[in-house]
Design a protein around this nucleic acid. Structure first.
Lengths: 231, 231
DNA sequence: TCGTCATTGATTGCATGCAAAAATTATAGT
DNA sequence: ACTATAATTTTTGCATGCAATCAATGACGA
């Protein structure tokens, strides 16, 4: 009765491949952190996460180690995990790097952009304008991210795209939480207009410049306006 | 006799803190891969690594997951780990990103370089020249890396430094294995001379340009001369 | 001889167990 | 009452065990 615990336990997640657990766990944990369900700085006990996801500690711990390597959480020796607390400095530094990566992506993209890609990015841009008109921040945020991701993807450099995704993920929480003020919002949209122009004209140098300053401005706005969102 | 296995086993590593195992394992595994002891593309069984390091599978697997997330190895579902095989394209893409990061680092560094840091980098540079004069490739390689790391560190941007370290680690194996030809070697040293000049003059824009082209040239040389080193 | 399928052995993925460390509570002394 | 120390509970870190999957070998039939 006490034996054969594995097959009799309620832990098993239904309809999932054995080897997919790790990837799935990572996804779900990342979501949990990014959505802010686990507040920054709070300690998370393995046990509660195990019950939350219905897995044992072994795969969960493997996922935690990966998240720690990615910088999403901190692992305190013998004291478990803690959601990484982002300082304003962390965000500023990360945005600086992201800005440079996007600038490179813009340069590379201009050398190989297909017409289809331009069409798609323009469509995303128009969607974003609609969300801006409605003052729908969450939808705007999503469309905005999609545009930047699309530009990075269009660079054709997968290492660049991966690195970008990693850094973006690290600060997505803060960016999501940050409410930009209306003036900065309008400015950002105007910048995006020029970004789209440079992209359409395949002007790599100009696009790189625009993306870099766009991110620098974002950094400034974030620090000036929403320091409390960084905790 | 068969019970109490933990305290009676020979597995225990002496003189090590309990919580340090993970970090140490990561280090040693990384070394093993970078030094090329585990050839690229080869599959590695958990078991042999366990015996090699004297640990059980649990901490080893945690380390493998992290290395996989870093891109040093690939995890095949149900079939263990394989040392990542770097294609020429992988290297080129990575060097492109590294070049951009170094350029940013140079720019930032010029704005905050202390006199001490310049002295230190100049010293490293002179050491590197000595190794070049002796045609001591391994020593040159080390000094060269140290200079680039120092510039990145001088940027004061830890996110940048971490990202840089991660990408560097991923391709260090290939860079180490690659023998640059003498002409390219001399060119590289000449480029470093100009890099040091820009650094001393705190000319950030120039330094950024130099670093970017320095890396672009490295990429070209690597692809042209040592494609076999990439496997 | 070759290809298909079954059987065996090895390896991975995950759950659990045990001991060390930390956190918490209880107890004693001032 | 309050701090300090001891006992207890909880949590973490690692080792091990079991079942699923994969790799290898052999039997069988064409």
């Amino acid at each position: 009765m006490t034996l054969l615990p594995q097959s009799s336990t309620a832990l098993k997640r239904p309809g999932r491949l054995r080897a997919d657990l790790h990837g799935e766990l990572l996804e779900e944990l990342r979501d949990l952190i990014v959505e802010g369900e686990l507040p920054a700085g709070s300690r998370v006990a393995e046990r509660v996460l195990c019950e939350r996801f219905g897995v044992s500690r072994t795969p969960l711990r493997e996922a935690l180690k990966v998240l720690a390597a990615e910088g999403l959480i901190e692992l305190l020796p013998n004291r478990g995990a803690r959601i990484a607390r982002l300082t304003a400095e962390d965000i500023a530094q990360t945005l600086k790097v992201i800005g440079t990566l996007e600038a490179l992506a813009g340069e590379l993209a201009c050398e190989r952009l297909t017409a289809d890609e331009v069409v798609e990015i323009r469509a995303l841009h128009l969607e974003m304008l609609a969300h801006h008109a409605r003052r729908d921040r969450p939808a705007y945020f999503k469309a905005n991210q999609a545009i930047h991701r699309a530009i990075v993807a269009a660079s054709g450099n997968t290492v660049l795209a991966q690195t970008y995704a990693g850094l973006s993920g690290r600060i997505r929480r803060a960016r999501y939480a940050a409410n930009l003020d209306l003036r900065r919002w309008d400015e950002a949209v105007a910048e995006h207009e020029r970004i789209l122009d440079a992209l359409t004209a395949r002007d790599g140098a100009q696009l790189a410049r625009l993306l870099r300053t766009h991110l620098d401005n974002k950094s400034y706005a974030l620090a000036a306006h929403s320091p409390e969102a960084l905790a």
